[in-house]
Write a protein that binds this DNA or RNA. Sequence first.
DNA 1: AATGAATGAGGTTTCATTCAT
DNA 2: AATGAATGAAACCTCATTCAT
Lengths: 206, 206, 206, 206
Amino acid sequence: MPGHERLSVVKDRELVEKRRSQMIKGAMKLFKEKGFHKTTTREIAKESGFSIGTLYEYIRQKEDVLFFVVDAIYNQVRSKLEEAIDLQHAPVENLIRVVKAYFDIMNDMQEEVLIMYQEVKSLQKDSQDYVLQKERDMVDMLKNVIMDCLPENLSMTDAELLANNIFVQGQMWGFRRWILQKQCTLNEYVDRQTSYLLRVLQVSPI
Amino acid sequence: MPGHERLSVVKDRELVEKRRSQMIKGAMKLFKEKGFHKTTTREIAKESGFSIGTLYEYIRQKEDVLFFVVDAIYNQVRSKLEEAIDLQHAPVENLIRVVKAYFDIMNDMQEEVLIMYQEVKSLQKDSQDYVLQKERDMVDMLKNVIMDCLPENLSMTDAELLANNIFVQGQMWGFRRWILQKQCTLNEYVDRQTSYLLRVLQVSPI
Amino acid sequence: MPGHERLSVVKDRELVEKRRSQMIKGAMKLFKEKGFHKTTTREIAKESGFSIGTLYEYIRQKEDVLFFVVDAIYNQVRSKLEEAIDLQHAPVENLIRVVKAYFDIMNDMQEEVLIMYQEVKSLQKDSQDYVLQKERDMVDMLKNVIMDCLPENLSMTDAELLANNIFVQGQMWGFRRWILQKQCTLNEYVDRQTSYLLRVLQVSPI
Amino acid sequence: MPGHERLSVVKDRELVEKRRSQMIKGAMKLFKEKGFHKTTTREIAKESGFSIGTLYEYIRQKEDVLFFVVDAIYNQVRSKLEEAIDLQHAPVENLIRVVKAYFDIMNDMQEEVLIMYQEVKSLQKDSQDYVLQKERDMVDMLKNVIMDCLPENLSMTDAELLANNIFVQGQMWGFRRWILQKQCTLNEYVDRQTSYLLRVLQVSPI
DNA sequence: AATGAATGAGGTTTCATTCAT
DNA sequence: AATGAATGAAACCTCATTCAT
């Protein structure tokens, strides 16, 4: 966390951890409901279960709350994704499993993903970079799985692009829900997007 | 425009048109630089070349400015896209041309597209719906072109999904520019995304 | 009218008269509905049937409108009262008739009287004085009628006070309507107040 | 107080009480000088001895200040009146004492009474009703004292009307001061109005 | 004489942040 | 460490008034 190491005035590490997770939980709820800008610091404090004064013992600015929330979301997505990756299987099977896992996660975390999308630009430049790097890491995880299935006529750039495609198609399920979720169920969506990918990779579905 | 017919107190249609385009131009510049929330109404008025009082002769609330801006962006994208569609060619050639045109537009309007993405949620519900419908219309344009190339083993739902894929891949070029534009040029991006699409459609590139 | 002779920039006397009465009519309607402060000059112009620019050809300030309205109300009350006074009868009969007439007028003009009461303090000092003098004149009319019935043991000061009493009791019927008009009808109100007055004047009711 | 229970964001009851009385004192001074509409919230805050932000910790809207002021005036009048009522005396003596007390209060609070008269219509409907009820209660106090002196040929409606008469005659001393206070002193005014009342009640003055 | 677009001072209200307790 | 009252800059918006046409 760039410049975020010494955000709180409170020394007790464990307490800091506890208060921060209260804060993230409370703020997340509010950001989902009304967005970052329409949520006040007073509301965040209240929803988190402590006073406005206490809130400012653990942050320097309102923006820090957004950073913590966005960071938490990324970490959550990432750890779920890591959990799902299990390279013991055949490459193609792996790819199918990971894509499915990723889409499931995106389905579970639709609202959180929306926050990321709409509020990240409210962060300072360096926080944005930090967050962007996390995103890049996740795309790389997808890319690696794709690489293992890459036919000879496709390059690393293709793997990169296809990973990005899958990445935003996952998010798309959430933020274009009004359109997509009328067309098909999550499983159908996963199946179809997977089959498109496999065709591009010239692999016949299993 | 839902409930936006009588936004201005000024009657002279032509003048309203003129002032509004001044306003859209000024506000767009500011929104690109600092976003909707960090831009004040006074700044909008100043950048548009008139006083705060005059601004409010042409809108009712600050949010109306955002609506006009977003609406203008959609109209611009749409009219450019319509311009590009020319169904005199063979279906596949058509598809290739339209996708290229769409990606070119998205490249030209990266910043505008970013505004749409990040600020639409600040609109009232009914304005959001209005804007969403415009988006749906544009996706439908892509879908129609895809339909003409659809092999027998793919359904209309596939066409819909693929149209959505192309749609967000176009936007992705802009809002994931830091990642993608390091990997390849616009033309490479277009070529690759097009070839993926054609493979899914089981059509050999021309 | 103190300082109100040259209010309008327009020369044509007849036209000035016409526009003013339009203005008074329009403004009166609005003042009754929402009071002076909550009525805008734009609304006054519109309700009067002309533009805001035209309005300002006939007044110098918004306050002038209030002055014209209040002045018109006083004149109306006064002329109706004069109409009713007819000193051909016996003094006591006269008194009874005038009091009844006055109360009837106050009943007819309840809303107008409310405007006078609540908005006069928004006038400039000199306009207030001008209006106050008109009121004094009307009280004097009542006083004169009372004087003709005054027993020996009451003085001119008593006549003055009793005239003032009648004056505000007439207004009271309007501005305390929620209390009084539940207790009795206008006629009952007049009868009772009259009989109280006659008792004070030691005259037996006719 | 209808809907006025949770007006302040501050929890400390005692502090709320203190700040409110500061606010009422400051606002009252300004309202006397220039009326509610011409007084700004910033001026109220300053005159009350705190910042604009603090003012809004204790109210929701500017109108709330007016409500508190008007409410305080009514309470003050009422408590002074209650203090004066002492039913240990004979009914007529009581009446004379209460009327005198009431007129004295109205004399002491001329400016406050003017505020009530001129600004109550700026309150929301429900606050107006609340205030009107307080007024009704006070009139009832007068009515009860009158009832004890009521001759057989007068009804309860007469008592009600006479109570209203006294009520507005008290106010009249203040808001028609320019006329009345040139005619006689407060004591003369009280004596005369009292004697008129007693004649109506067919009681010989003591 | 009439119009109505333009102006901008100034109003009310919000809310991130501080700091004494 | 926790509290919450206090702060005031700054936001949005209104509206009386002017003036070019």
